[in-house]
Nucleic acid binder design. Structure first.
Lengths: 153, 153
DNA sequence: TATTGTTATACTCTATAACTATA
DNA sequence: TATAGTTATAGAGTATAACAATA
């Protein structure tokens, strides 16, 4: 990440830069949004990574940490800590997969589903606040453009 | 920043998430772009922060580190290192401001202008590569949306 | 030999506080 | 008392390598 900060002061030069450099605009916007996401996550007690893992587990039921890592593009070594935290909170169970005893079968618990539901309920308000400067149509447009950028073949 | 990695594997679940969550799409796209920017910066020997400072100095001629910090929203303590590197490369001079001897007057040198010109010349190709999945119109659209998001009153 | 989960480690970006010299 | 620059430090997020158990 470029060495930049969300300093308090509001410069007049940065907007000019951002207007001609999509990369700079993107990085700065991301920093602001990530900060807001962390703050929102802290409020409901579920870290961003934990939220993503629970959300995926709710969809697929149960899978290995390796699959979670690959699908969410979170490094294996990072996934360990996320799974640890979720397990400690009782949101997830870890059992050795009988079919491949190297792997864990990570399963979401009822408490995990409740925590996820609560966290999901806070999302619309978070989005409304963080992306409040954009209309719904613009938000969809932005998401579409970013998707194109991210998942281009 | 959320605990996520640009893992090599390409999951099928992340695109679904990104499609419904602009914040996630934004953070992931930013990580990829920042990585590309760092790689591009490393090639021409000018860090991203250094590039920004030189670019602003080329526009305003000379100013204090404090002004650079505020305008570019780079923390004071980070700006020290950037100015150190630029000075060591001979791209910038630091002289005490006679009017306020607490402050430096940071001035771009001819060598600094040459380095900036060279780095600027690499930008279009970097943008073409990094944002190649988007048309020029889409790129402008993206920049506009991000600007609105970043600098909303 | 390769893979899953794990641990340790290192590196970067960022944040904060303290110090100096000036104002 | 406040400000400009500096330094040191601590905390995140990320990346890498190595290890044990298993395949």
């Amino acid at each position: 990440m470029p060495p930049r900060t969300d300093a308090r002061a509001q410069g007049a030069y940065l907007p000019r830069l951002a207007a001609e450099r999509p990369d700079i605009a993107l990085c700065r916007a991301s920093a602001a949004v990530a900060r807001a996401a962390d703050a929102a996550a802290a409020e409901n007690g579920l870290g961003v990574g934990q939220h993503l893992v629970l959300k995926m587990l709710a969809a697929v039921g149960s899978c290995s940490q390796q699959v979670l890592s690959a699908e969410l593009r979170i490094d294996r070594s990072v996934m360990v800590g996320i799974a640890d935290d979720l397990e400690r909170s009782g949101f997830v169970r870890r059992e050795r997969d009988p079919a491949d005893r190297r792997a864990y079968a990570v399963t979401i618990t009822p408490a995990g589903r409740r925590a996820l539901a609560k966290a999901e309920k806070a999302i619309p308000e978070f989005l409304a606040t963080t992306f409040g400067a954009l209309t719904a149509a613009e938000r969809a447009q932005l998401t579409g453009l970013l998707g194109k950028l991210l998942f281009a073949e």
